[in-house]
Design a protein around this nucleic acid. Structure first.
Lengths: 143, 143
DNA sequence: GTTGACCCTATAGGAACTTTAGGGTGTGCA
DNA sequence: TGCACACCCTAAAGTTCCTATAGGGTCAAC
């Protein structure tokens, strides 16, 4: 099958498929005489796997690791389990961060209930006077 | 004051200050004879404001809008309130997304409790067989 | 006169793509 | 035969919010 068909069955764009090939997540397929990429069933499976990982917000690095672990088929799946646990921990951290953010934003929003003049607006006053410490390092790759 | 001092009081780096100037968030200050940037109190206030907005994960576009609303001082602060409400909505959306993600990941993790062979690993089986729809457009700028 | 802390500009990198520019291929229809 | 049109190709730039690097200038103290 050609790239457009592959992209369609894997629910992504043609550009994304080519990008994954360049990144080494998807192996380069055979070409037709016209130099068009020609894919088989194993490519479909691999791409579906990658898209599922991405749907779970794994990074390319994580996916790369996972694919590597799978391909050395002798080993047990302890590494897979560990990677997933770490990824779940990332999600937990980000959820906690957002929860705190929501709290701060809600408190700020409380400070202006009606349409004041700019000078009287409690939100702007809050934004001007907040004391945030130095920006903390990002704990996870989840934005 | 010079850029290093400004950066210090606003808890950010010198590079970030120069970057904000290039982005139009912070106005270009006067220069000394040696071509060094020379800032006043109003720059300190503006930069503190920007850093507080960033601490709340607002984008540069949002901050730009907010600064614009503030500078046309005649208007009321309805626009400010609205922007904040929308930003809070972004955070809510992202929290809901992450919550669903956590759920999926936890279910996946359940599928392999011990160190299996690769073929038997329920996590890998799950990742291969999940059916995710087309990747939804990102609803928020919060990763 | 030279060390060191600070300042300057311009450019590249990172993540995971998307978009654009500028072309080639293959099939159906008049 | 000619041509429109959907599809394919590569390479490079743009997105966001910075951070890091290269290669240099300024100023005070010792």
């Amino acid at each position: 099958m050609k790239i457009g068909e592959l992209a369609q069955v894997a629910q992504c764009t043609v550009e994304t498929v080519r990008y994954y090939e360049k990144e080494g997540l998807l192996s380069a397929p055979a070409r037709t005489r016209a130099n068009h990429r020609s894919y088989g069933e194993c490519h479909v499976e691999r791409l579906r796997f990658i898209r599922n990982c991405r749907a779970l917000d794994m990074t390319h690095a994580e996916i790369h690791t996972l694919l590597g672990l799978m391909d050395q088929s002798a080993a047990d799946c302890g590494g897979v389990n560990q990677l997933l646990d770490e990824h779940i921990a990332h999600v937990d951290v980000r959820m906690a961060e957002l929860s705190q953010l929501k709290q701060q934003l809600s408190e700020l929003r409380q400070r202006c209930q009606s349409e004041q003049t700019m000078d009287a607006c409690g939100i702007l006053q809050g934004l001007a006077s907040m004391e945030t410490g130095p920006r903390h390092e990002r704990q996870t790759h989840l934005g």
